Computed example of a mutant assay.
Amino acid sequence: MYRFSNTVIGFLNLFTLLASIPIIGGGLWMARSSTTCESFLQTPLLVVGFVVLIISLAGFIGACFNVAWALWVYLVVMLFLIGTLLALTLFGFVVTSHGSGVEVPGRAYREYHLENYSPWLRKRIKDPHYWMTIRSCILGSKTCGQILLWTPLDYLTKDMSPIQSGCCKPPTSCNYGASMMAQDADCYRWNNAPDVLCYECDSCKAGVLEDVRRDWHKLSVLNIVMIIVLIGIYSIGCCAFQNTKRAETDYPYGENRMSKVRPRWDFYW
């Protein structure tokens, strides 16, 4: 089993080293794109790609060429990565524990209210610069164009995504025939112009947060799997580091380190 851990770490990091190349390429390609959504995602992609590239290169060199300091850097960064993923996962569960859709009587879709979500998410989504970025993404995706041809029967029987429910139509409770009746503020923000609709409504922001909440839950589950895998790789990396340290001392594991002592038989003669 000697140096088996080094071989495993070498192959694992060669695989992740090759996998980081398309991640970085995708981030650079998005940087050249003019669409707001893609440029909004390019920074996380580039950061993740370069971190994976550096840590994989250090682990590959350290395991395959017995470079102890490279493996030490690899283990330190790996420990930091595990801690960061764990913190992000716990934070994600906390901020997305609130919020969900409200059933609308007689309709298949749900509606979403901004006050049902965590204060941190509400503060983030209300930032004007951030919301303009998200609004441009929704306009560019043409999400609302999919329901423009719906009939009244379709609105009764078909389901909608959270963004469609919040951004593409006014709240179901709105009654535009009764002008003197107090209504939801989103009813007055609605406009049937294709570039206006309900994009400035609180219900639209709530629909975006519902999408974020669902995606964050999926990402948190993936993070838990990644943490378990990284802990396993980290354990193998610790064994590889010990093997490399032993190799540097020129005394492989199992070899007798005591030099032979020649008996002085001539002392008695």
Score class of each variant (00 low, 15 high):
F50P: 03
R3D: 13
P252A: 00
G254Q: 05
I23C: 14
A31L: 14
G99L: 00
D154F: 10
S203P: 11
T43A: 04
A178I: 04
P44T: 01
T157P: 06
I24K: 02
Y130G: 14
T96S: 06
C239G: 11
I23T: 11
S33L: 12
T35I: 08
L28N: 00
F93T: 01
I236Y: 13
T84R: 01
W29E: 06
L46T: 00
D202W: 06
W265V: 04
N192F: 04
V221Y: 11
P128M: 01
H129Y: 14
Y251G: 00
P152L: 00
D202H: 12
V77D: 03
S161Q: 10
S97F: 04
T36S: 09
S97L: 00
G99N: 00
F93A: 09
F65Y: 11
V94M: 10
L12G: 08
S97E: 01
E248A: 11
Q42F: 14
V47I: 13
Y112L: 00
S56K: 05
D211G: 11
S34Y: 11
T7K: 15
W216D: 11
P263R: 06
L197E: 07
F80A: 15
L81K: 11
S39N: 14
Y251L: 09
G27L: 08
A178V: 13
F60P: 13
L28I: 09
Q164F: 08
S141H: 12
G92W: 01
M132W: 05
P44K: 01
T157E: 13
A240F: 13
V47Y: 05
W120M: 15
L57N: 06
I61E: 02
A182W: 13
L156M: 03
S5T: 09
C204E: 12
L45N: 07
G83V: 08
L85G: 03
R3V: 03
R257P: 08
G26R: 02
V52A: 12
W29I: 09
G27Y: 10
L75D: 08
W216P: 10
G101R: 01
L41V: 02
M30L: 02
G177C: 10
V261S: 07
V95S: 06
G83Q: 01
P252W: 14
S33Y: 15
R135F: 07
G27Q: 02
T143S: 15
T151K: 10
L85Q: 08
R122G: 12
N66Q: 11
L156A: 06
Y251I: 03
P252Q: 09
R107C: 09
V95A: 02
G99K: 02
T84V: 12
N191H: 09
D211S: 13
S203D: 13
T43Y: 07
E111L: 07
R110C: 09
